[in-house]
Design a binder for these strands. Sequence first.
DNA 1: AAGGAATAGTTGTCATGACAACTAATTTAC
DNA 2: GTAAATTAGTTGTCATGACAACTATTCCTT
Lengths: 146, 146
Amino acid sequence: MTQKNEKKVGILLERSTRITKLTFIKAFKKIDADITPEQWVILDSLYKENGQTQTDLCQKAYKNKPTISRIIDITCEKKYTKRKNFDGDRRKLKIFLTAKGTKLVEKCAPEIEALRDLSWKGLSNQDYNTFCKVTDQLFKNFSSYE
Amino acid sequence: MTQKNEKKVGILLERSTRITKLTFIKAFKKIDADITPEQWVILDSLYKENGQTQTDLCQKAYKNKPTISRIIDITCEKKYTKRKNFDGDRRKLKIFLTAKGTKLVEKCAPEIEALRDLSWKGLSNQDYNTFCKVTDQLFKNFSSYE
DNA sequence: AAGGAATAGTTGTCATGACAACTAATTTAC
DNA sequence: GTAAATTAGTTGTCATGACAACTATTCCTT
């Protein structure tokens, strides 16, 4: 394991995550979409399944509740989403994409698709599968830390 | 490529990055070290090579200049680092670890080492190599976007 | 030598992410 | 039925990260 100890998982992940996010930022700017990568994650999730609770969104996006709440504040302000009461449980809210939000998602989808294609260029299905395996295992390994 | 398009690189990276960072936060708390993961990256870099410029640190950490400047503001306030003038170029500063900073790095090192070991548990050298290859390729792929 | 371009670092602003704490509502245990 | 525990979402605070803009300094071009 000595060879691996020369490489830090953190820096590899940070680097990749950062440039991925930066590239998404550029893409949105390129198509003149007023949205951040993080907001996109939420809107895209709602596009697939509209009317989710904030807790649903948290879990899907691996984000914490305060962060989700704040992102939704902003997407509501931009009129991309709307908060509605959840029938049967007064604590919960349902979050809906607006027509404006739906339009935006559809506008962005081709460019994001292109980004996805770009990201895996020069890599095989096997590479992808190993990447998934590694990220899953990292998640498991760190989930057990204390 | 249709299979891969079901999976988004962003979310995989985000998830892994987040839990990695969270685990580092827990580790520092566990050993009662007053430091964040991001600050650690800077201190560790200085431990290896003391007296670097901020730009050096930026490049090594894949962070932008304002962020580095702010992190160093805080590490200076905590007395872990000190800014000094760079002989021969009045624009530049050299950043040094203090004795307190050095002590902190040495205090943290075993736990961070243990985290490193934990992170790769259940994964092979081959997995690691593929992970590196994938993250490098992602970096390259996105660096070419526009 | 002079002026333009590039560089090092800083400041402002906004967004996101972590933790802690809180309120209100629901669920669980007795 | 009641009280304790848990849950959904919000607010506060601090740290980080992005972009834009800025000042001072150095480098490059003419």
